[in-house]
Design a protein around this nucleic acid. Structure first.
Length: 185
DNA sequence: AGGAAGATCTACT
DNA sequence: GTAGATCTTCCTA
């Protein structure tokens, strides 16, 4: 079942946590979300929507929840989902997936054979799924690209965000405990 | 024109 | 496991 817009219309941190274990679907490819990070617009120096960052990021982060936000960093497309309460700003970064379907296609696109190395990083998973700027602003409640619900149970770990230069001290990173596909432990 | 960016790969200690 | 080079876009001067 596809997640409704209502799912994304909550506090960014809560959505980040609840997205764990859900299934990202793009064409023939499916992957379980195993790692996420929450980013806010204002008062978050690590956010792309902070101060003079790219306009389209700010705009989208303020837009309707449930949209895809994609931007380039160091030759890597990063995939975020706009998620926030009314009149707020925020998005959830998908940091890592566990490949479920379309693994052959992912291997071909990534040029590697090791399953564990296919989608265990924010830049890797976009490449494996064939996601790029064309998908920026896409509505995840439509058919092309969306997220499926799941009732799986697991332990969730809450830590600081990684790979950023500012705003490191906040506990806004979530991942599934003991999962092999988390980018870093 | 120059720099920064939420990363990745490779090559070492 | 850590360190350095390098990739592309967008922002500011």
């Amino acid at each position: 079942m596809k997640l409704p817009r209502k799912f994304y219309s909550k506090n960014t941190k809560i959505v980040a946590r609840e997205l764990l274990g859900k299934i990202l679907v793009h064409k023939k490819c499916k992957g379980k979300i195993v790692e996420t990070e929450a980013y806010f617009g204002k008062n978050d120096p690590a956010s792309r929507a902070y101060m003079g960052r790219p306009k389209f990021c700010v705009k989208l982060m303020n837009d309707k929840p449930g949209k895809a936000l994609i931007y380039m960093v160091h030759n890597n497309w990063l995939f975020n989902i706009v998620a926030h309460e009314k009149n707020e700003t925020g998005a959830v970064l998908i940091r890592a997936l566990e490949p479920l379907e379309g693994i052959k296609i992912m291997k071909k696109r990534r040029g590697v054979n090791d399953i564990k190395n296919l989608t265990n990083g924010p830049g890797k998973l976009t490449k494996a799924f064939g996601i790029d700027k064309r998908h920026n602003g896409l509505d995840l409640t439509k058919d092309n690209l969306f997220i499926e619900n799941s009732n799986e149970k697991f332990e969730i770990v809450n830590t600081t965000r990684i790979g950023i230069s500012r705003g490191k001290e906040r506990l806004l990173r979530f991942y599934i405990k003991d999962n092999e596909f988390v980018s870093k432990k």
